[in-house]
């Protein structure tokens, strides 16, 4: 078995008495598509920055391809904001970066096609929308055919059709390891081989497949009941796995959907039975781990 592409051991990052990351242990295998999920400020981007080598941990270590992160032609990074030259046209930016990598002009026609760059070739970068900028950033990240692709919010601001094409045609290379963050958790569920949650600088759970995170012993099950807080008292459901999200209780059925439906029906009919989501698992783990 080959060694992991990324290994993080007790990784921590502290700034002025504030823990940005705490005791992060993580291993990502070659060819995996791995999602890092968490709310804003959870530490996702900082963790990617450590793995990219842009920042150094204050404790622990990050190992990428068997060594401390450093400039490596096998690694491509796509940050949330694509920092390119505002006064160059898209085609010039592509020429610029192609030349640095020694790539032949027009060597990546499939990328241009899938990312629909042809229509914006002659536009100055500063005039592009966020989604268009992200498409240029994706081109640059993928054009070097990296073995490890690290992406912070890669498909935010992209329309769903292009997003699907990107995942199916560009990011499904079995030789490429993909580590990404996203605010679209359904995207992570659909395309990540494994994922983990991060909250307040620490991982909430061991990495697992999206399905396993929902159905593992500490998971929440595939179905949930959603009931308005006005229709139930929290004491009534205290013995059940649940979280309160705004004006609703989300009660996780954990394989006992019919039993719970029967139990709640005696009190109110004002509830819905829905599929559990990764957000539910995240909220439930936060509640249990920080209780």
């Amino acid at each position: 078995m080959s060694s992991p592409v990324i290994t993080l051991t007790e990784l921590a990052f502290r700034v002025e008495d504030r823990d940005i990351l705490r005791g992060v242990n993580l291993s990502i295998e070659r060819g995996e598509t791995f999602a890092l999920l968490g709310s804003n400020g959870a530490g996702k981007s900082t963790l990617l920055s450590m793995i990219s080598g842009n920042q150094r941990p204050t404790e622990g270590e990050a190992i990428v391809f068997g060594q401390a992160p450093k400039t490596d032609s096998r690694v491509s990074i796509l940050s949330d904001v694509v920092p390119l030259f505002p006064m160059l046209k898209v085609k010039e930016i592509i020429q610029y970066f192609d030349a640095f990598y020694g790539r032949a002009p027009n060597a990546n026609n499939e990328l241009v096609e899938v990312l629909e760059l042809g229509t914006i070739f002659n536009k100055l970068f500063r005039t592009l929308s966020k989604g268009q900028r992200k498409r240029v950033g994706l081109y640059l990240a993928l054009a070097s055919k990296p073995e490890l692709l690290i992406m912070d919010e890669p498909t935010s601001d992209l329309d769903p059709l292009i997003r699907e094409q990107i995942w199916k045609r560009l990011l499904n290379d079995p030789d490429m390891t993909v580590l990404f963050t996203t605010h679209d958790w359904e995207e992570a569920r659909a395309y990540a081989d494994r994922l983990t949650f991060i909250h307040d600088g620490a991982l909430l759970t061991q990495p697992a497949t999206p399905q396993a995170l929902l159905t593992s012993p500490e998971g929440i099950g595939a179905r949930k009941l959603v009931i308005p807080t006005t229709a139930a008292d929290e004491g009534m459901i205290a013995d059940l796995r649940h979280v309160r999200l705004e004006d609703e209780y989300h009660i996780f059925a954990d394989g006992r959907t019919e039993e719970l439906v029967s139990r709640l029906s005696r009190v109110t009919l004002n509830f819905s039975v829905l599929d559990s989501t990764l957000q539910d698992a995240y909220q439930y783990l936060i509640k249990t781990k920080t209780a």
Binding site: G53, N54, S76, I77, V81, P83
Partner: peptide, 16 residues
């Protein structure tokens, strides 16, 4: 400030 240096640090010849 805009992250360009971090962005190109992974590229060949970053000082160029």
């Amino acid at each position: 400030n805009n992250g360009f240096i971090g962005y190109v640090r992974q590229m060949p010849h970053p000082s160029a």
